[in-house]
Each structure stands twice: as C-alpha cells, then as structure tokens.
Simulated assay, not measured.
Amino acid sequence: MAQFVDWDLAAATAGTLGKTGPRVSYVEATAVVGDLRQLTDEAAEHVADFTGLRSQVSHPPVQVVDRRDWAATNVAGLREVIGPLVGRLAGDKQPSVLTEAIGSRITGVQAGTVLAYLSGRVLGQYEVFSGEPGQLLLIAPNIVEVERKLAADPRDFRLWVCLHEVTHRTQFTAVPWLRAYFLGEVQAFVDASSSGGEPLVERLRRGITVLADAVREPAGRTSVLDIVQTPAQKAVLDRLTALMTLLEGHAEFVMDGVGPQVIPSVERIRASFNRRRESGNPLEKALRRLLGVEVKLRQYAEGRSFVHGVVERVGMEGFNRVFASPLTLPRLAELSDPDAWVARVHGPAGPLPAGD
C-alpha cells in the first residue's frame, strides 16, 4: 500500500521545530517527574470519589514526558491507526513512485509542523491510538512553563492539571467500550471521505485558499475539518464532536468540583488560566482555530454546561447513565439542551437528584 505520510519525517520535524523547554536543573526535573506521578495517584482517588466511576480494566502508569517524546508518541499512534486508513482517501488509484516520495514527505513535514506547535501547548493527554486501553501522558516542560507564567503554586497547579487528565483516563478505563467506539467513528469518518463526489485533491486546493483567507480574517470560525469534510463525513463529525465535547466538559466539571476541596489556590489558578486561554496574537489565534484548538476551547465551556445541567437535574449517578452505551451518549443538539437528554434517557419526568 502506498505511504501517504512519511511518519519518520513527521517525528523528526516535530522534534526539530518544537519549542525548547524552560530552564530547570536535573534535580528540579527529577522532582517534577516524581511530583506529577504522585499527584496522578492522588487525583485518581479524588476523581473516583467525586464521579463514582472506577477503572474496570488495568492501565499502564502515567508517562511524564518532554515535548519531543509527546510528539513521537502521537506519531506512533497516528501511524498505527490513522496510517492504514489514509490510504483509502486515494481509492484504488495508486500514485507514481515520484509522486508518492514527494507527497509523503510534504505531508510528513506538515504533520510534524502541526505536532511541533501543539507540543508546546498541551499540558496532558490521554492517548488512545497506540494501544488498549490508552496511555496517560503529562508534558512536564509545558506544565512547569505555564505554572511559572501564571505564578501559580506548583503543587496546586500540578494537581489541578492531573485532575483534568486523570478524568479522561477514568472515562476510557471505567467505560471499556468507549475506546473502540471512538476508533470506530474515526474509521467511519475516513470511510466517508470518498462519498462526497469532489476529489480530495480539489478539497485540499480549496482548503489552501480558505487557510490564506483565515489568516487575513482571524475572526472567522473555519477549521481544517470544515475544509476537507464531505457531507457524509459531517454526520460522523457531529457524533465525534458531541462525544469530545462531553468528555472535555466532564473533565472540566470534575476539576472544578474537586478543586475547591483539595487545592487552596484553585480560584486564582482557574481565573489566570482562563485569561491565558483567551490570549494570543491574531496570527496565533488563526492557527489555533485552523488546527481545531479553538473548537476544543469551546467544547470545554459547552460540555461543562451540559454536564452541570444534567447533574443538577438527575444527580451524578443519573448523569453516569451517559456512559451506559453509545445510545445514551448525548446528541449534538442535546449539548445545549440537557432537558432533552434527560427526557430521552431517563424518561419525561426523570429521577430527582439524591436527597430531594
């Protein structure tokens, strides 16, 4: 099968272009790694007690990594899952040897450039592509850099980050069918790429124009996914968007619910971090939007509002019905209408929250 992405070049590009980390001594770096591992374990207990969700499968210990290792892990995951699917984008027509050689390197550099940008911004990730059930990653240089910029208490900030990322691990390990469902939707998205009539190359050419326009007009809302998706893909993307908004909002709800109980400076951290999320020069804001980062930021707020609304109506146990099966996941329209989800899953009346 043709290789459409030079994954080795993508990893090398990400490592070369990635930001350098903050200045820390070896002793400081060792202490940060140990602290993050310990706080991950502490966060896991807090998350389990707050949500009522506990892991149903064993999982590997957290990996505390630098930016280069984070990018390499993501390249390995993309190669494992996305690589075989990308070949379907060309259908049965195989490119010439020269076209393949040049094209795979171009896309390798492009993928590496995107990962290099993201490697300087991501604080943590639950990486699900590389293997079952997934791997929790914490990017130590980014965590240290942000806590310094915010002048935050290091332990408080690190525990705050761990609460969010451990919630994602809990979601995938307490709900064993979730990873397979997510990967199935990713495959369905790629499968639907050939059903839109317009050749992929034409969509990509159109995308270049949209990208250029977006840089000149940063206030727009177009992302890369908006550029390349076919009508058939939109239905899949709606389901993926609903899922990711739920998972991100749930993690935000948990960290805000647990935080005041265990993190003395949480209110200051949240306020400072929100200001950081909203900051950035016009070009950076355009890049964040084009890469889908702005969509993710909206998912935090929209998802948290949905989770809060459901918990307010049916309690945490009632909310956890969302993880009963793919059929109980919220539909895209329900994210702004918790009552609609409650009525569909719990019945028109819905159970009263505990204690009522």
Rank of each mutant, 00 (worst) to 15 (best):
A12V: 03
E28Y: 01
L36H: 03
L36M: 07
T40M: 00
V47M: 10
V47I: 12
A48S: 11
G52F: 03
Q56E: 15
V57S: 02
P61V: 06
Q63T: 09
D66W: 04
R67N: 05
D69C: 00
V75T: 12
L78N: 13
E80R: 15
E80S: 14
G83A: 00
Q94N: 07
Q94F: 04
S96V: 10
L98G: 01
T99F: 10
E100G: 07
S104C: 04
I106A: 14
T107Y: 04
T113I: 02
G120K: 05
R121E: 15
E127Q: 14
V128Q: 13
G134S: 07
N142S: 11
I143S: 00
V144C: 03
R148W: 07
W160E: 12
E165Q: 12
T167A: 13
T167L: 11
R169N: 01
T173C: 08
Y181C: 02
Q187V: 00
V201D: 13
R205L: 14
R206D: 13
I208K: 08
E217K: 12
G220W: 03
G220A: 07
D226R: 11
Q229I: 02
R239I: 06
L243T: 03
T245P: 14
I263R: 12
P264F: 01
V266Y: 05
R268P: 03
A271Y: 08
R276M: 06
P282M: 12
L283K: 04
L283N: 06
R288F: 04
G292D: 05
V293G: 09
V295P: 00
V295C: 00
S305G: 08
N320V: 04
A324D: 15
A324S: 14
P326N: 10
T328S: 14
L329M: 06
R331Q: 11
R331Y: 09
A333H: 09
A340V: 01
R344P: 06
R344S: 00
G347S: 13
P351N: 05
A354H: 13
